[in-house]
Deep mutational scan, measured.
Amino acid sequence: MDLSALRVEEVQNVINAMQKILECPICLELIKEPVSTKCDHIFCKFCMLKLLNQKKGPSQCPLCKNDITKRSLQESTRFSQLVEELLKIICAFQLDTGLEYANSYNFAKKENNSPEHLKDEVSIIQSMGYRNRAKRLLQSEPENPSLQETSLSVQLSNLGTVRTLRTKQRIQPQKTSVYIELGSDSSEDTVNKATYCSVGDQELLQITPQGTRDEISLDSAKKAACEFSETDVTNTEHHQPSNNDLNTTEKRAAERHPEKYQGSSVSNLHVEPCGTNTHASSLQHENSSLLLTKDRMNVEKAEFCNKSKQPGLARSQHNRWAGSKETCNDRRTPSTEKKVDLNADPLCERKEWNKQKLPCSENPRDTEDVPWITLNSSIQKVNEWFSRSDELLGSDDSHDGESESNAKVADVLDVLNEVDEYSGSSEKIDLLASDPHEALICKSERVHSKSVESNIEDKIFGKTYRKKASLPNLSHVTENLIIGAFVTEPQIIQERPLTNKLKRKRRPTSGL
């Protein structure tokens, strides 16, 4: 017993010596996670971090007073192994002897410093981030199933929210409404489509400006004509009531908005009720001829604005009016007729031209339509002016008669200019590109209106002035400009410049 007691005391002394060697000089306990400095002193990692955080910048070693920084600290694995072995020896000594260790306080702390507990403390002390800490805590505590279930439920809930957000973003663009038309193969669909197009076009005519009305009406008319041609002859009974509906809707729209509806009346003529396609083609032919005449008058307007600064050229074209007008009339009417003589009366030419125009518009179905009313009214106005011209010709002399006839021709041009508003800008460009020769010939008609105004002003003063002067240069210039014009009389060319000069002198006297 005595020997055993001596041996136990010796073992205890050895353990105490080893414990003092492996103590931390700051906390005076076994080193936890030993860290060595540049001066080869060993301290606990937790104690050194606490010391360095007390001051900004480098701190001093507690043993040798040298500078220490966080970067200079290094882990010493050898001392950590020695500490672990010492703890194992102490545990074995207690089991063999059955005696508690003399320094129970220190031993209890040593026992608490088992490797499992050290790992837990290291995970908390090290600044490795929240995710690494959570992982280490889960690994160190596998015995708690409640914690695992809560963490898994949190992760699953987070994943569910992310997935639901993604699915919502994908589903939202798919919620856009999609309209699908289910059509049938019955023959009544074509008639319904035609009526739908006509009503939609009328609404567009009321909303859209004048520049786009003609294009819309032309497209709708083409669509309706194609649909009529596709149907068989057996379905004509269905077409006639639908066309009557079209007429009623167009008349109502014309009564409500007459000014807006006139812009599309000329282009919509071939959508009118037709028994066969031949009647629609004839109407299209007549409309094309009318559009040609209207576009020519538009060309004359532009030329008149350009040549208004040259009064000499405008005056020299006075007698070329009849010849150029004959050529335009021959090209406007498709019928083959002989040219009228140069010395014939211009009023007779106008009456013949009106007689040619009237039969074209005397179809029984055309008179029933609303768009032809505008053309009939313009023709009636022309006839009224010609009836007035006959009365004026009986009273005035030959020279005054010529000037009045020219004035009436200008009035006719004004009437025809009203129809110019109905034609589109695209048709003007096509006419100029296809028929430049006709445009040059028809330019002379509009330029002549300037000389007509001068004659009217001469009649106000009650006299006409003449001068025997020749202007050969002007006649040559005008002959080169206009290709299809005829030779003019030299006496009238000489008379016109004198009248304008005298007018300039006598205007201030009349004002006084």
Rank of each mutant, 00 (worst) to 15 (best):
A17I: 01
F107T: 03
I171G: 08
Q94G: 07
T167G: 15
Y101Q: 04
D40L: 10
V122W: 01
C91R: 04
K45V: 07
S76C: 02
L99N: 06
Y179M: 14
Q60P: 04
R131N: 10
Q169D: 02
A5G: 12
G183C: 02
K56L: 13
K88R: 14
D189E: 03
M128L: 07
A17M: 15
S127R: 12
N16M: 15
H117A: 05
Q169P: 12
L73P: 14
T190P: 13
E116L: 09
K119G: 10
N16C: 02
D185E: 05
L22A: 03
S104I: 10
E84D: 01
K175Y: 06
A108W: 02
K50S: 13
Y130H: 08
R136G: 11
R78V: 14
K65L: 08
N106H: 15
D2S: 10
E33S: 13
K38R: 15
K56G: 14
S123A: 02
S76T: 01
T164E: 03
T167W: 10
T190C: 14
S76R: 06
I15Q: 00
E149C: 05
T176I: 05
E116D: 03
T167I: 03
K32V: 03
Q172E: 09
Q94A: 13
S76Y: 00
R166A: 08
C47R: 01
K294F: 15
A5E: 10
R133C: 09
P142D: 13
N112T: 07
K110A: 06
A221V: 00
Q126R: 07
E29T: 06
D189S: 13
L28M: 15
E141R: 06
T97I: 04
C47A: 00
L28T: 14
Q155N: 03
I90K: 15
K56A: 06
M128V: 07
L82G: 01
Y105W: 14
K32P: 04
T37E: 01
T77E: 11
E75L: 03
S72R: 04
Q148A: 14
N66F: 03
K88H: 11
S186V: 05
P115I: 08
L52T: 05
Y179G: 08
V14N: 06
Y105C: 06
Q139M: 05
L165T: 14
L99V: 08
M128T: 02
N106G: 09
K50A: 11
I31F: 06
T164D: 10
T97D: 01
S153H: 11
G129R: 09
L147C: 04
M18Y: 07
Q172P: 03
Q172L: 04
L30A: 03
E188H: 10
V83T: 02
S146I: 01
T37G: 14
E141F: 02
S140W: 06
K38S: 11
S184K: 11
D40R: 11
N106R: 09
K110I: 01
L6W: 09
E121D: 10
E141L: 06
Y179C: 10
Q148G: 05
S186N: 12
D2G: 09
E111V: 07
I68D: 01
F107G: 06
I42K: 13
I89G: 02
A102C: 12
A102L: 06
S177V: 05
C39S: 00
N103S: 04
E85V: 03
I68R: 00
I31Q: 02
S157G: 07
K110M: 11
V162E: 08
T77K: 14
K20P: 01
L52R: 02
Y179A: 11
G160T: 12
Y130T: 06
G98D: 02
L28I: 14
T161I: 05
F43G: 11
F46Q: 06
Y179F: 09
K20N: 15
K45E: 02
K135V: 11
F43H: 00
N66G: 04
S59A: 07
E121C: 14
N158Q: 10
I42A: 02
N113S: 07
L182T: 14
I171E: 09
E116K: 02
H41Q: 02
S153A: 03
K175T: 10
L165S: 09
N132R: 08
H41A: 02
T176P: 09
V11T: 08
T164L: 06
M128N: 08
Q81I: 05
L95Q: 10
Q148F: 05
V8E: 12
Q60T: 14
S127D: 13
E111H: 06
P115S: 06
S72E: 14
Q81C: 14
Q169R: 08
N66A: 11
L156T: 13
E181C: 03
N112R: 08
P145C: 03
D189G: 06
N103H: 01
Q54K: 08
S140T: 05
Q174E: 05
I31S: 15
N112C: 04
E100A: 05
A17T: 08
L137D: 15
T164Q: 03
K20C: 12
I15D: 04
F43S: 12
P115L: 07
T161S: 10
Q19V: 14
T77G: 10
L73V: 03
Q155A: 06
F79T: 01
Q126A: 09
Q81P: 02
I171Q: 05
E143W: 09
Q139K: 11
T176E: 10
K168H: 14
Y105L: 12
L6S: 02
L51T: 13
S114E: 15
L99R: 07
E100K: 13
E141I: 15
N113W: 02
Y130V: 08
S157D: 14
L152S: 13
S80L: 11
Q148V: 10
T150E: 12
I31R: 02
S186K: 04
L156P: 15
E111F: 07
Q60Y: 14
S114R: 11
S186W: 14
T150G: 11
Q155T: 08
K56T: 03
V191R: 09
T176R: 08
D120L: 09
F107K: 14
P145A: 05
A17S: 15
R136D: 13
N268T: 13
Q54M: 06
S151T: 03
P173R: 07
S186T: 13
K55Q: 13
E149T: 07
Y105H: 04
G160P: 09
Q74W: 03
G129W: 15
L99M: 01
I68V: 13
E181F: 13
S186A: 08
G160L: 11
K168V: 09
V162L: 05
T37M: 00
V162C: 11
N103W: 08
I31E: 01
K175C: 15
E188K: 08
L137T: 11
V191T: 11
A134R: 11
R163Y: 06
Q174M: 11
Q155R: 09
L165N: 13
C64L: 00
Q54E: 06
I124G: 05
S186L: 04
G160C: 01
T164M: 14
L137G: 09
E84G: 10
P173D: 07
G183I: 08
E188R: 08
T150H: 06
I171P: 09
E143I: 10
